[in-house]
């Protein structure tokens, strides 16, 4: 059993789900606290040193969105949201409010652990050197200083917009970015809600970096929510 330093807070009202998550976390060597209500979650967040928050959106007392907003007032800790399948709107809203990732019920423990590892890695990367000059996933590499992209060691030509989109993904490896957020970051605030341009841009970028754009290895589509740069 690996021992880790991170402490995770599980906020989930169903005891069975709470149990198996706790067990899996223990197996992975994480320390954890559990809370079954929003109120106890908030008091735990204040009294303990929590590194990552695992939050069920459907809590009996508080709206999950409310908890995200309150946490974001004082902390940058990764937040992974758990929700039911037909709550796309809530998912996107949670991500826009500051959540880092989401999982849909029923989720497998393996999947959950993978997501938690990504979030923790993300946390360390940001905590360590904020001004990193290079980042890479698989055969894809980006040099932030030189504004260059490499695929399998070879320099890849990208348009300024494609670079801008790709660098946004590389600054948020593994994190789900909502369409709304990407448009705001890449096209600017005044651009409006037109997703068509973003789809076209993503398609052209995929045609450059993916072997098969409909079976992407790097830029994954989260239907109804947004995109994510794969971390594996």
């Amino acid at each position: 059993m690996v021992s880790r330093n991170e402490t995770i807070l599980i906020v989930e009202d169903d005891p069975q789900i709470r149990n198996f998550i706790s067990y899996s976390l223990k197996q992975e060597g994480f320390r954890y606290f559990t809370a079954s209500t929003g109120q106890s979650a908030l008091s735990n967040l204040v009294s303990e040193k929590i590194d990552l928050l695992l939050l069920d959106l459907g809590l009996p007392d508080l709206d999950g969105m409310e908890i995200i907003k309150r946490v974001r007032e004082w902390s940058e800790m990764p937040i992974i949201v758990v929700s039911a399948r037909d709550q796309d709107k809530e998912k996107a809203e949670a991500l826009d409010s500051g959540a880092d990732d989401y999982l849909t019920k029923p989720f497998s423990a393996t999947e959950l652990m993978a997501r938690i590892r990504v979030a923790i890695r993300h946390l360390h990367r940001e905590g360590g050197n904020k001004q990193q000059s290079k980042a890479g996933v698989g055969d894809l590499m980006i040099d932030f200083d030189k504004h260059l992209v490499y695929l399998e060691e070879a320099e890849l030509h990208t348009t300024p917009m494609e670079y801008s989109l790709l660098s946004l993904f590389f600054r948020n490896i593994g994190k789900v970015l909502t369409t709304k957020y990407i448009i705001k970051e890449v096209y600017g605030v005044g651009y409006g809600p037109d997703t068509q341009a973003l789809r076209t841009l993503t398609a052209s970028l995929r045609r450059k970096i993916e072997k098969n754009p409909a079976k992407p290895r790097y830029i994954l589509t989260e239907i109804g929510v947004g995109y994510r740069l794969s971390d594996e």
């Binding site: 169903d14 069975q16 789900i17 149990n19 459907g58 039911a84 399948r85 029923p106 423990a109």
Partner: peptide
């Protein structure tokens, strides 16, 4: 209904997976 059915099923599936592991 969906919440009341899905939640326990998600619990059973997750626990089952952990047990299998």
């Amino acid at each position: 209904i969906s919440h009341d059915l899905r939640t326990p099923l998600a619990g059973i599936m997750g626990t089952g997976e952990v047990l299998m592991d």
